[in-house]
């Protein structure tokens, strides 16, 4: 039973990572750095909560999240592609913008600086921790599906081939008539939508939006993208690995043997170790972060 509970907890934590990392993979494979994932997630969580609150339906909430994430990612892509701004700088700016904007609109809409009121979400009111209650949450299935669909898109479709070419050798892609910029805009929009679904999962699971509720998960997802060497399945494994580390942290927290501050470091320390371990072998897409001529 303990093993099952551990697995259930891990999967539950992994779902937002799976969404965001599949977004990270497509964005980075197309040549756009996925630094804005954190912002898309937080934006998605907020838009999802608001749309769910006003419509009374979590499904409408998901649509709201997708729209919000796409809008943010397209803003990033427009700045990086059309105006050739440095992707690292714009990525950080998007994250800061979303942090501030969600706080601002939280106050505007709900007169609170910390939380939204209770919003309709998925799953039981008293969300259990078992696998059975997890299975009733459609976002769990969507999250797993996101990875499979991303792998199919990337390796089996013309669009995926173009994404891989655009991120690796955009001049070559241009020379055979592939509209590299358009390929990248679409990849950005997809990554925004996926990451936003990951954020919406958090809000709808907790039936509430709270300020800065993504707490760096977008960056963990980016780390998983890199740890997974820009491949959807390997990135998914990385997500599960990080989620397992977090679960371990939660369980150890209860045990009270090690100071909690150290326990809380576990996932992040593991992230650093994992990335340092693959850094020699991880070859990013050659044109990552570079605007086309």
């Amino acid at each position: 039973m303990i093993v099952l509970a551990f697995l259930a907890q891990t999967l539950r934590i992994a779902i937002p990572y799976l969404f965001a990392a599949s977004g990270g993979v497509i964005s980075e494979r197309s040549g756009l750095i996925g630094l804005g994932l954190e912002g898309y997630m937080l934006g998605g969580a907020f838009c999802g909560a608001v749309a769910s609150y006003y419509s009374g339906s979590p499904w409408v909430g998901l649509l709201g999240a997708v729209a919000g994430g796409a809008a943010l990612a397209l803003l990033y892509a427009l700045t990086a592609i059309r105006f050739r701004a440095d992707q690292v700088v714009v990525g950080i700016a998007v994250n800061l913008l979303v942090t501030g904007a969600t706080r601002f609109f939280l106050r505007l809409a709900f007169h609170s600086s910390a939380n939204s009121p209770r919003v309709p979400g998925f799953g039981a009111e008293q969300s259990g921790t078992g696998l059975a209650s997890l299975a009733r949450n459609p976002l769990i299935w969507l999250g797993i599906l996101a990875i499979a669909v991303m792998a199919w898109l990337l390796y089996r479709t013309p669009y995926g081939l173009r994404v891989r070419a655009a991120g690796e050798h955009p001049e070559a892609a241009l020379s055979v008539g592939v509209p590299v910029d358009r390929v990248r805009y679409v990849a950005a929009a997809l990554s925004g939508m996926l990451a936003a679904l990951g954020g919406a999962y958090l809000a709808l699971d907790q039936h509430q939006f709270s300020a800065e509720m993504t707490a760096g998960r977008g960056f963990i997802a980016l780390a998983a993208t890199i740890f997974g060497r820009w491949d959807p399945f390997r990135a998914a494994l990385a997500c599960l690995f990080f989620a397992a580390a977090e679960t371990l942290q939660i369980q150890l927290q209860g045990a009270q043997v090690i100071p909690s501050q150290f326990v809380e470091m576990i996932p992040y320390a593991l992230t650093i170790v994992a990335l340092a371990g693959v850094v020699g072998r991880a070859v990013p897409p050659a044109a990552l972060g570079k605007a086309t001529e």
Binding site: L161, E168, E171, A172, A173, V176, G177
Partner: peptide, 16 residues
């Protein structure tokens, strides 16, 4: 103008 990470066939078909 070849994408080194793709196969010969993938490079051939890229764009059409």
């Amino acid at each position: 103008m070849l994408v080194p990470t793709l196969t010969v066939a993938e490079n051939m078909m890229l764009g059409r």
